[in-house]
Deep mutational scan, measured.
Amino acid sequence: MKVIFLKDVKGKGKKGEIKNVADGYARNFLFKQGLAIEATPANLKELE
């Protein structure tokens, strides 16, 4: 799953980066902790 990092995550990505991560990792950790959001077309447009 592609995500947009909202904060730096050690060993995974830095704020503003778009990366592929495991679905479970994204849903169970990154999204719940507010560290990333899903890289949907709408979210990508907001990032620009």
Score class of each variant (00 low, 15 high):
residue 1 M to R: 08
residue 1 M to T: 12
residue 1 M to H: 05
residue 1 M to Q: 05
residue 1 M to F: 08
residue 2 K to E: 08
residue 2 K to L: 15
residue 2 K to S: 12
residue 2 K to T: 14
residue 2 K to R: 14
residue 2 K to M: 15
residue 3 V to N: 00
residue 3 V to A: 02
residue 3 V to P: 00
residue 3 V to L: 04
residue 3 V to K: 00
residue 3 V to S: 00
residue 3 V to D: 01
residue 3 V to G: 00
residue 4 I to D: 00
residue 4 I to L: 11
residue 4 I to K: 04
residue 4 I to H: 01
residue 4 I to Y: 10
residue 4 I to W: 03
residue 4 I to N: 01
residue 5 F to A: 01
residue 5 F to L: 08
residue 5 F to I: 01
residue 5 F to D: 00
residue 5 F to H: 00
residue 6 L to N: 01
residue 6 L to W: 02
residue 7 K to R: 13
residue 7 K to I: 10
residue 8 D to G: 06
residue 8 D to M: 04
residue 9 V to P: 01
residue 9 V to W: 05
residue 9 V to S: 02
residue 9 V to D: 01
residue 9 V to I: 08
residue 9 V to F: 04
residue 9 V to M: 04
residue 10 K to Q: 12
residue 10 K to M: 11
residue 10 K to F: 12
residue 11 G to I: 02
residue 11 G to D: 08
residue 11 G to N: 09
residue 11 G to F: 08
residue 11 G to V: 01
residue 11 G to S: 05
residue 11 G to R: 05
residue 12 K to T: 11
residue 12 K to L: 15
residue 12 K to N: 07
residue 12 K to P: 01
residue 13 G to F: 14
residue 13 G to Q: 03
residue 13 G to M: 03
residue 13 G to D: 02
residue 13 G to W: 14
residue 14 K to N: 09
residue 14 K to V: 09
residue 14 K to L: 12
residue 15 K to H: 05
residue 15 K to P: 04
residue 15 K to F: 06
residue 15 K to D: 01
residue 15 K to W: 04
residue 16 G to F: 10
residue 16 G to H: 07
residue 16 G to Y: 08
residue 16 G to V: 01
residue 16 G to N: 07
residue 16 G to K: 02
residue 17 E to H: 04
residue 17 E to L: 03
residue 17 E to S: 05
residue 18 I to D: 01
residue 18 I to Q: 05
residue 18 I to G: 01
residue 18 I to T: 06
residue 18 I to F: 04
residue 18 I to H: 03
residue 19 K to I: 09
residue 19 K to W: 07
residue 19 K to T: 07
residue 19 K to R: 12
residue 19 K to D: 03
residue 19 K to P: 00
residue 19 K to A: 10
residue 19 K to N: 04
residue 20 N to P: 07
residue 20 N to W: 15
residue 20 N to M: 15
residue 20 N to F: 15
residue 21 V to K: 01
residue 21 V to Y: 05
residue 21 V to R: 00
residue 21 V to E: 03
residue 22 A to R: 12
residue 22 A to M: 10
residue 22 A to Y: 10
residue 23 D to W: 14
residue 23 D to A: 15
residue 23 D to F: 14
residue 23 D to H: 13
residue 23 D to G: 13
residue 23 D to P: 15
residue 23 D to E: 15
residue 24 G to N: 14
residue 24 G to D: 15
residue 24 G to H: 14
residue 24 G to T: 14
residue 25 Y to W: 10
residue 25 Y to S: 05
residue 25 Y to R: 06
residue 26 A to T: 08
residue 26 A to K: 03
residue 26 A to S: 05
residue 26 A to G: 05
residue 27 R to P: 02
residue 27 R to Q: 09
residue 27 R to Y: 11
residue 27 R to H: 08
residue 28 N to H: 12
residue 28 N to T: 08
residue 28 N to L: 11
residue 28 N to V: 07
residue 28 N to K: 11
residue 29 F to D: 05
residue 29 F to S: 06
residue 29 F to E: 09
residue 29 F to K: 07
residue 30 L to G: 00
residue 30 L to K: 01
residue 30 L to R: 01
residue 30 L to A: 01
residue 31 F to M: 06
residue 31 F to W: 02
residue 31 F to K: 03
residue 31 F to S: 02
residue 32 K to Y: 07
residue 32 K to W: 07
residue 32 K to G: 07
residue 33 Q to V: 09
residue 34 G to H: 10
residue 34 G to W: 06
residue 34 G to S: 06
residue 34 G to Q: 08
residue 35 L to R: 03
residue 35 L to T: 02
residue 35 L to N: 02
residue 36 A to H: 00
residue 36 A to S: 01
residue 36 A to T: 01
residue 36 A to F: 01
residue 37 I to T: 06
residue 37 I to Y: 05
residue 38 E to A: 11
residue 38 E to W: 07
residue 38 E to I: 08
residue 38 E to N: 03
residue 39 A to G: 04
residue 39 A to M: 07
residue 39 A to R: 01
residue 39 A to P: 02
residue 39 A to T: 03
residue 39 A to Y: 13
residue 40 T to R: 04
residue 40 T to A: 04
residue 40 T to P: 05
residue 40 T to F: 05
residue 41 P to V: 13
residue 41 P to S: 10
residue 41 P to Q: 11
residue 41 P to L: 12
residue 41 P to I: 11
residue 42 A to Y: 08
residue 42 A to D: 12
residue 42 A to E: 14
residue 42 A to T: 11
residue 42 A to W: 07
residue 42 A to P: 07
residue 42 A to I: 10
residue 42 A to M: 11
residue 43 N to D: 06
residue 43 N to S: 09
residue 44 L to G: 04
residue 44 L to M: 11
residue 44 L to W: 06
residue 45 K to N: 10
residue 45 K to T: 09
residue 45 K to V: 09
residue 45 K to M: 12
residue 45 K to S: 11
residue 45 K to P: 05
residue 45 K to D: 09
residue 46 E to H: 13
residue 46 E to A: 15
residue 46 E to N: 13
residue 46 E to W: 15
residue 46 E to K: 14
residue 47 L to I: 11
residue 47 L to F: 13
residue 47 L to N: 08
residue 47 L to A: 08
residue 47 L to E: 06
residue 47 L to H: 11
residue 48 E to N: 12
residue 48 E to I: 14
residue 48 E to G: 13
residue 48 E to H: 13
residue 48 E to S: 13
